[in-house]
Every structure is written in structure tokens, then in C-alpha cells.
Design a protein around this nucleic acid. Structure first.
Length: 414
DNA sequence: TCTGGGGTCCTAGGACCC
DNA sequence: TCTGGGGTCCTAGGACCC
């Protein structure tokens, strides 16, 4: 048996934990640059505001209904997420962190009759210790546990299906698009073939499902029938690529500003690389205009450069990224977004260095910068190439304080 | 005026090897 | 008139997830 524990309206709920004035009203959380709506409270969902909708189309409605909005605050959400996980680890035998707001747990060894009470205990404890509301779904496979969790969200917060048969009596009529791993394109394909509901899909010929959805679809089919194909993954697999990209706060035309931006993103990517304990053997740079501005001339380019020696040296990565940016740049366009991707990653530990090329890595320097920044909890030391107070930086006009990760964000009690 | 960011996996096809 | 069988590696594109 598996459990799926999922935070309800996660980002929106995180904002409410330390700010009761945001509760019981339509609240949305905005993407970077305050452009899109990436999370909604119940009240905001009830107004019909869609996931991913552009904020400028919904501001009026929100204002009319006493709504509120917040710029995304990922340090806050990440910290509350790890508090939630630590509660789960106390109560459940084995926990896999699947995303910032979702964890799977292994329930083997727990007596079936005890599962509903365990689910309720998880809910109560997370609410008491962290201040967040979660839904708990339990079933014989991960795919069924996901569905159970969906059902739980609207039906009391806990749902236990001891068998696939029990699950199917509830979800038979649900659309296949509700199933984890079936997106809107494959849902349309299945519907056209006469498998529009979960009940119809489990009756389908596996060979046909394989033809249409590849082995991925075959696994989903088995999971729906109660055959577990997706084990709990307790080991955190090393990342295969690291991406750092951002939209600009305003259109950027000049190369020198693009060079600052790409240096900033390279620095961010390098920091993630250090945290992962990996080296990069290739670096990519991409650049594009705003595709939503139909009247503007459009351009979308990218390039990938191999590094002569696998490295995690921030300055080397910045230099290489800037050289690539100079190649990509063409004047006369209003650029909206750029990014850096590190690939062909290899673990630092035990990496075979080149016989001919000296490594550019300077661990002592990196360590010094990192410990200064860690100690003062901010970007105290950084590369001048990144620019100082850049004009292209993204907008975040309504960011809440980092209540739990910065001294100046601590709540004050009057 | 205003539209995110960061990942994974699978398949087909091309290039190459013996 | 006639041209095998078996394999690997890499990349691009498509699909999915949160």
C-alpha cells in the first residue's frame, strides 16, 4: 500500500500561515515577474480563475471580490515544505519527497483497518505543527493513491482504497485525463479511440495502449489494475541537468545588459551545481523575444558549448556563457528572456581529470564565497559581471516576508 | 502595459562499428 | 541478376509532471 500526502492549495496556504488577513478570501500567488497565476485559494478557484491565467486578465475580478495577490516566495514555501516532510517522516515508515507539496509513503506493515486513523493523524499533526492542510490518499499503487488523494480533497481529507476494485467503483466514470501521467494530448487520443473514462481504459487491449502511449502508458494501465510498477524511490537520484532562466522585468535590447543577465543565471546554475556535488561538461545558453507580442519581430535562439574540462568553477561558467551569448546576440530585437543550462553532469567525487588540461576549479575561493553568503544569509559576495542593481531584474511587487528563513522576516507581535 | 521556471522519460532516426 | 545481421551512441522532438 502507498499513501500520497498533498498540501491543499499549497503556495496560497503557505501565504496564509503567517498572515491571517489573507484567509477566507480569494488569494492568488503569481509567477516570477508577477505575470501568471500559479496557485489559488478555494475562494479564488470558486471565482473561476484558471491555473496559469495571465494576471492582467483577472486583476479586475479579484479586486471586485476583495481578493488579494502575492508574488511567489519560494524560500517560504520550501521551508514550510521541509517542515511538512519532517512531520511525515515521524509518522510514516518510509517517505519519498515527490515535489514541493507532495510526498509518497510506503504503508507496508500497517494493518489495513488502521489506515483511515493513520491518515487522519497525519492530517491533524501537519495542521497543528505546520499550519497547513493536507489531503491523504491510500491505495495499492502510486497511481491509485494519486486518485484517492484527489477524491480525499473533496471528501473529508482522507480516502483509503484497500484494493483496485474498491478504487474502480469510485473512479470508473472519471475522465482518463484525471490519471497521473495522462496529459491533455494523450487524453484526447484515448478519447478518440473510445477510451474516454478510466473504466473504459482498464478494459482496453494492452498492445493497443502500448502503441498509443508507449511503455509509459502500459505501466499506467497496470497500476490502475492494482499491479504496482512504480516503486517508492527513497534515494534522491543525481540531477541530469540544471537550468537557470528568467524573464526580464522589461524588454532588453543591449548586449551589455544581456551579458549581465546571463552571468547572473550562470552564477545561479553554478550554485546549484555545487550543492549537487557535480561538475558540468557542457553549458547551453538560450535567448528569446516575447512570443505574446505579435507586433514585435520574433527571435528564439540557443547554443550548446562543450567545456574542455568538466568544471564547477563559477567564473569559468560565466565566461563561457558570456562568449556564447555574444555569438547568439543580434541587435534590433526586444529580448524578453534568457537562460543557462548545464548538462552532461558528472559527480565531483572520483571524477577522472584530464591529463593535458589543468582544472580551472578553485575550491578554496568557492568555499569562501559560499560561507560568507551562508553566514549573512544573502547575496553578499558575487561576480561583478552580474551587474549591480540591474534594470532588467524581474518584478516582484507584492512579495511577503520570508517569515521563517530571514531574521528581518520574523513576525513582530504587538 | 501586463503571459513562469524547472525537471524527467521515451522514441525515432541518423551515424557509426564489426 | 544479385547486397546481412547485430549492435551502440547521440540528438531532436514530443509528452508528461509540479
Amino acid at each position: 500500500m502507498f499513501a500520497l500526502i498533498d498540501g491543499n492549495n499549497f503556495f496560497a496556504s503557505c501565504e496564509m500561515v503567517f498572515n491571517p488577513a489573507l484567509r477566507n478570501r480569494p488569494l492568488v500567488v503569481l509567477s516570477n515577474n508577477d505575470g501568471c497565476i500559479i496557485a489559488r485559494s478555494y475562494e479564488a478557484k470558486a471565482l473561476g480563475i484558471p491555473m496559469g491565467g495571465p494576471m492582467h486578465e483577472w486583476r479586475g475580478l479579484l479586486t471586485k471580490h476583495n481578493g488579494a495577490w502575492r508574488s511567489a516566495n519560494f524560500p517560504l514555501y520550501g521551508d514550510l515544505s521541509s517542515r511538512m516532510v519532517s512531520v511525515l517522516r515521524e509518522l510514516l515508515p518510509a517517505v519519498e519527497v515527490y515535489s514541493i507539496d507532495e510526498s509518497f509513503a510506503d504503508l507496508n506493515g500497517v494493518i489495513t483497518g488502521d489506515l483511515p486513523a493513520l491518515g487522519q493523524q497525519v492530517r491533524d499533526t501537519v495542521r497543528q505543527y505546520v499550519g497547513l492542510s493536507v489531503a491523504v490518499g491510500m491505495a495499492p499503487t502510486k497511481t491509485l493513491a494519486k486518485l484517492a488523494n484527489q477524491y480525499a480533497k473533496k471528501n473529508g481529507g482522507v480516502c483509503v482504497w484497500p484494493t483496485a476494485k474498491a478504487a474502480l467503483t469510485v473512479v470508473e466514470q472519471w475522465k482518463v485525463g484525471e490519471v497521473w501521467g495522462i496529459g491533455h494530448r494523450n487524453a484526447a487520443k484515448l478519447e478518440a479511440l473510445g477510451f474516454g473514462t478510466i473504466g473504459q481504459l482498464v478494459q482496453a487491449n494492452p498492445t493497443l495502449v502500448r502503441q498509443v502511449l508507449s511503455v509509459v502508458g502500459l505501466r499506467i494501465l497496470e497500476e490502475l489494475k492494482g499491479v504496482s510498477c512504480l516503486p517508492l524511490e527513497l534515494m534522491h537520484a543525481p540531477r541530469k541537468q540544471i537550468l537557470a532562466s528568467r524573464s526580464f522585468g522589461r524588454p532588453v535590447v543591449r548586449l551589455d545588459e544581456l551579458q549581465q543577465a546571463i552571468a547572473t543565471y550562470a552564477e545561479r546554475a553554478a550554485r546549484k551545481l555545487h550543492q549537487e556535488g557535480q561538475l558540468a561538461q557542457a553549458i547551453g545558453v538560450m535567448l528569446r523575444t516575447n512570443p505574446f507580442r505579435g507586433t514585435d519581430k520574433q527571435r528564439r535562439v540557443s547554443t550548446m558549448v562543450g567545456l574542455p574540462v568538466a568544471t564547477a568553477d563559477t567564473a569559468t561558467l560565466i565566461r563561457t556563457a558570456q562568449a556564447a551569448m555574444a555569438e547568439l546576440y543580434a541587435p534590433g530585437f526586444k529580448y524578453a528572456k534568457a537562460g543557462v543550462v548545464l548538462t552532461n553532469l558528472a559527480p565531483q567525487q572520483g571524477f577522472q581529470p584530464s591529463l593535458l588540461e589543468p582544472t580551472p576549479d578553485r575550491p578554496a575561493l568557492q568555499q569562501a564565497i559560499q560561507s560568507l553568503n551562508a553566514r549573512y544569509n544573502q547575496r553578499l559576495v558575487y561576480h561583478a559581471a552580474c551587474g549591480i542593481n540591474p534594470k532588467w531584474a524581474m518584478r516582484a511587487s507584492t512579495r511577503s516576508p520570508s517569515y521563517t528563513t530571514r531574521w528581518e522576516g520574523l513576525c513582530v507581535v504587538h
